[in-house]
Protein backbone atom coordinates (compact mmCIF):
# COMPACT_ATOMS: atom_id res chain seq x y z
CA UNK A 1 0.00 0.00 0.00
CA UNK A 2 1.08 3.59 -0.56
CA UNK A 3 1.31 6.04 2.32
CA UNK A 4 2.91 9.43 2.71
CA UNK A 5 4.84 9.35 5.96
CA UNK A 6 6.45 12.55 7.24
CA UNK A 7 6.12 14.07 3.81
CA UNK A 8 7.68 11.14 1.91
CA UNK A 9 5.56 8.92 -0.36
CA UNK A 10 6.47 5.31 0.39
CA UNK A 11 5.29 1.85 -0.61
CA UNK A 12 4.48 -0.55 2.24
CA UNK A 13 3.20 -4.10 2.40
CA UNK A 14 -0.48 -4.16 3.35
CA UNK A 15 -0.79 -2.76 6.90
CA UNK A 16 -3.94 -3.20 8.93
CA UNK A 17 -3.61 -0.30 11.31
CA UNK A 18 -1.28 2.27 12.89
CA UNK A 19 0.15 -0.30 15.31
CA UNK A 20 1.31 -2.31 12.29
CA UNK A 21 2.85 0.80 10.69
CA UNK A 22 4.75 1.66 13.88
CA UNK A 23 6.13 -1.87 14.01
CA UNK A 24 7.00 -1.78 10.29
CA UNK A 25 8.98 1.44 10.85
CA UNK A 26 10.75 0.07 13.93
CA UNK A 27 9.46 2.81 16.23
CA UNK A 28 8.42 2.80 19.88
CA UNK A 29 4.78 3.89 19.92
CA UNK A 30 5.10 5.19 23.49
CA UNK A 31 7.55 7.89 22.40
CA UNK A 32 5.77 9.40 19.42
CA UNK A 33 2.61 11.26 18.51
CA UNK A 34 0.78 10.61 15.26
CA UNK A 35 -1.46 12.53 12.90
CA UNK A 36 -3.46 10.71 10.23
CA UNK A 37 -4.73 13.02 7.51
CA UNK A 38 -4.19 16.02 9.80
CA UNK A 39 -6.15 14.48 12.68
CA UNK A 40 -4.36 13.45 15.85
CA UNK A 41 -4.76 9.79 16.69
CA UNK A 42 -4.71 9.10 20.44
CA UNK A 43 -2.17 6.46 21.42
CA UNK A 44 -4.96 4.25 22.74
CA UNK A 45 -6.49 4.17 19.24
CA UNK A 46 -3.45 3.05 17.22
CA UNK A 47 -4.72 -0.53 17.03
CA UNK A 48 -8.19 0.62 15.98
CA UNK A 49 -7.04 3.10 13.35
CA UNK A 50 -7.17 1.40 9.97
CA UNK A 51 -4.91 2.62 7.20
CA UNK A 52 -6.11 3.36 3.69
CA UNK A 53 -4.12 3.78 0.52
CA UNK A 54 -3.01 7.40 0.17
CA UNK A 55 -3.19 8.25 3.87
CA UNK A 56 -0.92 11.05 4.98
CA UNK A 57 0.77 10.20 8.26
CA UNK A 58 2.90 12.46 10.45
CA UNK A 59 4.96 10.84 13.19
CA UNK A 60 6.66 13.25 15.59
CA UNK A 61 8.55 13.16 18.85
CA UNK A 62 10.27 15.46 21.31
CA UNK A 63 13.76 16.65 20.48
CA UNK A 64 16.04 19.21 22.07
CA UNK A 65 14.91 22.83 21.83
CA UNK A 66 14.98 26.14 23.68
Amino acid sequence: MNLTVNGEPRAFPPLADLTALIAELGLDGRKVAIERNLEIVPRSAYGKTRLLDGDRIEIVHFIGGG
Binding site: N6, L25, I59, V60, G64
Partner: peptide
Protein backbone atom coordinates in the same frame (compact mmCIF):
# COMPACT_ATOMS: atom_id res chain seq x y z
CA UNK B 1 11.54 20.73 24.30
CA UNK B 2 10.72 20.96 20.60
CA UNK B 3 8.56 18.69 18.48
CA UNK B 4 9.83 17.38 15.15
CA UNK B 5 9.31 14.56 12.67
CA UNK B 6 10.84 11.24 13.66
CA UNK B 7 13.83 10.31 11.50
CA UNK B 8 12.43 7.30 9.67
CA UNK B 9 15.69 6.39 7.98
CA UNK B 10 17.33 5.65 11.33
CA UNK B 11 14.76 4.78 14.01
CA UNK B 12 17.54 3.56 16.33
CA UNK B 13 19.08 7.02 16.79
CA UNK B 14 19.10 8.39 20.38
CA UNK B 15 15.87 9.93 21.63
CA UNK B 16 15.67 12.88 24.00
Amino acid sequence: VALRRVNLSDPSQPML
